[in-house]
Amino acid sequence: MKRRTALKSLALVLGGTLSLPAWANAWNADTLSGNLNQLVSPDQQALLAEIVETIIPATNTPGAKDLGVHRFILTMLADCYEKSAQNRFVEGLTELDETVKAHYGKSFVTCSPAQRLEILKAREEAAKILPPEKEPFFPFLKNITIQGYLNSEYVMREVYKYELVPGRYNGCFPVTASAKK
């Protein structure tokens, strides 16, 4: 409603025609950086997809894999992190899968969803008691997965109701009304 009002007001300003230029087209998961494969192999990319899906699975709403969170992580790593952080991450990924193979006799991606969750839960428990320098991988993985998930279009738009054009500010808004939104 508010957005429509705002768009109408924009149309007014622009002289009645509302056509958006080409650059206004939305970014989507397929247009992400081409650098992805420079960091990891296709197999590792598939592994990461299953890991983020285990951390935030599809339920009655999409999970991290469907939202492309693994691709987001690889884009961020490639473009916004030091080489050392990139190496730590790729090593962590490799090491995780090797450990899984040793314990389960198969790779993470062929484990059942219950096994995958068990593996990551054990990993998180271990991370809690280890000093950060001994376990730099898992806490980073979990945080950046959450970052990608919370900043995905789905969560921002559908859950958190992000508004590009609020058209208002209410400085004393009742919390109950806020919760209802």
Binding site: W23, A24, D79
Partner: peptide, 21 residues
């Protein structure tokens, strides 16, 4: 016309706002 990002939603930025290293 020369405000290329003005209609973008946060998720439309490849690095969610962060400037590449």
């Amino acid at each position: 016309t020369d405000y290329p990002t003005t209609f973008k939603n946060p998720w439309e930025f490849e690095h969610r706002g962060q400037v590449p290293l």
